[in-house]
Design a protein around this nucleic acid. Structure first.
Length: 555
RNA sequence: GUCCAUGUAGCUCAGCUGGAUAGAGCAUCCGCCUUCUAAGCGGACGGUCGGGAGUUCGAAUCUCUCCAUGGACGCCA
């Protein structure tokens, strides 16, 4: 148990003993004041009690303070300040206990059971297998991946799933486009659909098919060829997507396809279910879902008058299937263009009896690529949208992921390619990685390594205390980021942790032959920092290099 | 028109489940390498938190309203 938790527990106990109040979770809050003059920790509990007790906050604070002084053995002083804050100053050695906690837990430092094993299914990327992933997908991809890493660290059981949209008109279009490109390779007359796929990937795949199958598709009826090429194209495009995602360090536990859902009869089942529940009606030859009764703007068509399903219909079956598999919380990361779609899916889930909030949709806003202050819409090489692969070949995986993850998902993102390319202090990802490499260097240079001690009594420089305190908040930060699905806050954490370390490094000589005891304690602090930083970077899927290449060599 | 975001320093953004004097990076300026990685550190400058009203011990944070920007509003996917 860390110091914050201890304080929270004692305060909670005091509320019960003294005022007969059972504190809800989140009632007692402990924070680290921005200003060191306000103590090492602080709580606003006295102010929060004013409404309940109908008394002045200062009076309450004074009473709580007296109780705290009796019950806490690791505090040096407690004072009341301002409108009723209770501020704590800790004994100098109390803070340093975090070092051994971190070292003992190692890779697991930062983990918690905040999620209480809740089974979560996170669906993300889910791009149609009709072409390569582009920069917009790149944002949602690393975001979803990082959210899953964070949730799993915080005690959720998060499964990552990719919904392959492979049953619609888009796929037919791919088949047609492939046939066109394929015939082109033989020098035959060919036609490309007006809204076909003109990217280089289709030409490359057509070549692959030609090499493998020769003239096979020339010797069959056109419709048949399109159908077969659609299937072959789906596999090859999907393999490319899988490869890109893996390279980008985005992993998936499950790939589920729209076609599979259809072939299993899940769509008929869900329509049948909704019919029985009286949620559907027929009008103008189509089958409608009365979603407007569940918060949607208007009702939605499930089966068109031509007999085909709308996009929504198999996706409802998909979501039912998720709940049926025992997932308690569904998280979807959707492009902002799917905004209007949220209300209908939530309506469908609610109508079917699933609590509305068990489906959470996080929207990924648009990404604009900026180069030298101007928007670049197209890749110079291909003339098409810039692909994920091009982006990471250009700036590197660490950099791409960090840039996307550092901004809240629902804000428009201007991605500064020029900045991302700079290997200098302008570039925030290097700042953090440099701190990590620096720590490793310091640890390497310790003449005899270091050993863990039972107590660390010599760490009392303000820079050391700041660093210790900040390390101790990591577990709470991870839990908070998991609950709110905000990897960008891990980026903030990592920046700040690096700053505290650099600052400590500048102020304190770590390897000092004239002060071996102090050196040992400082090295232990370095090790705790290193572990924390590495774990944090791992949650982002960003590398922690032990050596930073020299800047000049990178020109 | 309806719905949803967003609006914070010159720029890019944190902070938003109400807390103390609103933060960081970049840019600008001033210091610090004979010393463990200067891709670093310390400091200065920079603000009507889009405008207005309200809620209360307290508002960048919550409510209302107005303004601005972006997106979504299909028997497309």
């Amino acid at each position: 148990m860390n110091i914050e938790e201890k304080i929270v527990n004692v305060i909670t106990q005091i509320l019960t003993d003294k005022y007969g109040i059972t504190a809800d979770e989140g009632m007692v809050m402990i924070e680290i004041p921005k200003d060191n003059g306000n103590g090492d920790y602080s709580t606003n509990i006295a102010m929060r009690l004013t409404k309940v007790l109908k008394r002045r906050p200062q009076e309450i604070a004074e009473e709580v303070r007296e109780e705290l002084l009796k019950r806490l053995d690791f505090v040096d002083d407690i004072q009341i300040a301002g409108p009723g804050f209770i501020n704590f100053w800790l004994r100098k050695d109390a803070m340093a206990n975090i070092i051994n906690t971190v070292i003992e837990k190692g890779d697991a430092y930062g983990h918690s059971d905040a999620g209480k094993g809740l089974k979560v299914l996170e669906e993300y990327v889910s791009a149609n297998p009709t072409g390569p992933l582009h920069c917009g997908h790149a944002r949602g991809a690393c975001w979803g991946d990082s959210v899953a890493r964070i949730m799993n660290a915080a005690g959720y059981e998060c499964t990552r799933e990719y919904y392959i949209n492979d049953a619609g008109a888009q796929m037919l279009n791919l088949g047609k486009s492939l046939l066109g490109r394929y015939r082109e390779l033989f020098g035959l007359d060919f036609e490309m659909p007006e809204d076909g796929y003109y990217g280089p990937d289709v030409i490359e795949i057509a070549k692959e098919i030609k090499e493998k199958d020769g003239e096979k598709y020339l010797n069959m009826p056109k419709e048949e060829a399109i159908e077969e090429l659609r299937e072959v194209g789906r596999e090859l495009e999907l393999n490319r997507i899988k490869k890109d995602l893996a390279y980008y360090r985005c992993s998936f536990d499950s790939w589920i396809s729209e076609k599979w859902i259809l072939s299993e009869g899940l769509v008929e089942d869900s329509i049948e279910k909704m019919k029985k529940m009286g949620l559907l009606y027929e009008k103008d030859g189509a089958l409608w879902f009365e979603s407007s009764k569940y918060g949607d703007d208007k009702d939605r068509v499930l089966v068109k008058s031509d007999g085909y399903y709308t996009y929504l219909t198999p996706d409802i079956a998909n979501h039912i299937h998720k709940f049926d598999r025992g997932y308690e919380l569904l998280v979807n990361i959707w492009g902002a263009d799917h905004h209007g779609y949220i209300a209908r899916m939530k309506a469908a889930m609610e109508a079917l009896g699933y609590p509305r909030d068990n489906l959470q949709v996080d929207l990924c806003q648009m990404v604009r690529m900026i180069e030298d202050g101007k928007e670049v819409k197209m890749s110079k090489r291909t003339g098409n949208a810039i692909t994920l692969r091009e982006l990471i070949d250009d700036i590197g995986i660490d950099c791409a992921r960090y840039f996307f993850l550092s901004k809240a998902l629902d804000t428009h993102l201007d991605f500064d390619l020029t900045l991302a390319r700079t290997q200098s202090n302008d570039n925030p990802v290097y700042y953090v990685q440099y701190a990590y490499a620096r720590i490793c260097s310091v640890l390497r240079q310790a003449p005899n390594g270091f050993h863990v001690q039972d107590f660390y009594g010599l760490l009392n420089d303000p820079k050391e205390i700041d660093l210790l305190k900040y390390i101790s908040t990591f577990t709470d930060v991870v839990a908070d980021c998991a609950i709110n699905r905000t990897p960008n806050k891990i980026c903030n954490y990592v920046q700040k942790l690096a700053t505290y370390f650099h600052s400590f490094y500048g102020a304190c000589k770590i390897n000092d032959v004239n002060a071996p005891e102090l050196s040992n304690e400082r090295l232990a602090l370095c090790e705790a920092t290193r572990i924390t930083l590495k774990n944090a970077l791992n949650l982002l899927g960003v590398g922690a290099p032990e050596v930073m290449e020299n800047k000049e060599n990178n020109e």
